[in-house]
């Protein structure tokens, strides 16, 4: 009896030890996950030298590698970090650096518009809107849709109608043909919200008079808007 027990013990000892050590790993990991881990903030955006090194070899790979990292930054050690706890100045620096790597890409502006404006802090939303506006100025033909969304965010989330109007006016006055009528018409609806009916009438009248608009649906929309405003006035 003693001999067989001894045999079992000696032959299975490494296996028993292995299981014991692995159980220790499981317990340790479980306890460390349960601890409240300090929120890590964005690191400083890359310096010019670092950017040069990153871009020297394979810029597309580095760019596409950093995007998911930035996107998933709020998920840290099994917990979701609220955006209001993240440093938006550094975030803007990162978004700028990434956009410089691939000026044609829509990803950084999409993240700024659709992800990082979903924060309950006005100052942070404004930082993102500023970033979107800067990107629009650099490349209006590629980035107009994000400025249109920024105008909507300024109007409905920030309730800052002058800011929304300034964005909408940029879109309306953009000479490029790429921007559709619905985006150009945003300034009319925002002016209407602001109670500037006379200005809307003047703008619509001007648009219809100079024959620049050739689309029948757009002309019909502007005529209906003009009729509605005149009825309300009467």
């Amino acid at each position: 009896m003693t001999k067989s027990f001894h045999q079992i013990r000696s032959s299975h000892l490494p296996l028993i030890l292995l299981i014991a050590v692995w159980l220790c790993v499981v317990i340790w990991r479980d306890s460390s996950m349960a601890q409240k881990v300090a929120v890590e903030n964005f690191p400083e955006p890359p310096s010019v030298t670092t950017q040069v090194i990153m871009q020297a070899s394979d810029v597309a790979f580095v760019y596409r590698f950093l995007l998911p990292w930035l996107q998933q930054f709020d998920v840290q050690s099994g917990q979701y970090v609220a955006y209001r706890n993240l440093d938006y100045t550094r975030l803007t620096g990162w978004l700028n650096s990434l956009q410089k790597m691939a000026p044609e890409s829509q990803y950084p502006t999409l993240m700024a518009t659709r992800i990082y404006t979903k924060v309950g802090d006005e100052q942070r939303i404004r930082q993102m809107l500023d970033f979107i506006y800067q990107q629009y100025q650099l490349n209006p033909e590629k980035k107009w849709r994000w400025l249109a969304e920024a105008a909507v965010i300024a109007r409905h989330r920030l309730k800052d109608l002058p800011l929304a109007l300034s964005y909408a006016q940029k879109l309306a006055n953009e000479p490029s043909n790429v921007i559709p009528y619905w985006a150009r018409d945003m300034q009319l609806t925002i002016l209407e919200d602001m109670g500037e009916f006379e200005q809307v009438k003047l703008l619509v009248g001007g648009l219809l008079a100079n024959k620049a608009i050739t689309d029948d649906n757009e002309i019909r929309f502007l005529n209906l808007l003009l009729e509605r405003l005149q009825k309300n006035n009467n």
């Binding site: 394979d58 597309a60 790979f61 580095v62 760019y63 596409r64 590698f65 995007l67 998911p68 996107q71 998933q72 890409s105 829509q106 990803y107 999409l110 993240m111 659709r114 992800i115």
Partner: peptide
């Protein structure tokens, strides 16, 4: 896996990461 996490430009992200990793 990356394709499941991207919000836009999925193909571009997939091919860039695959190519870089393979190289």
């Amino acid at each position: 896996f990356i394709g499941q996490t991207t919000l836009t430009e999925t193909r571009e992200t997939q091919v860039a990461l695959m190519a870089g990793f393979l190289r």
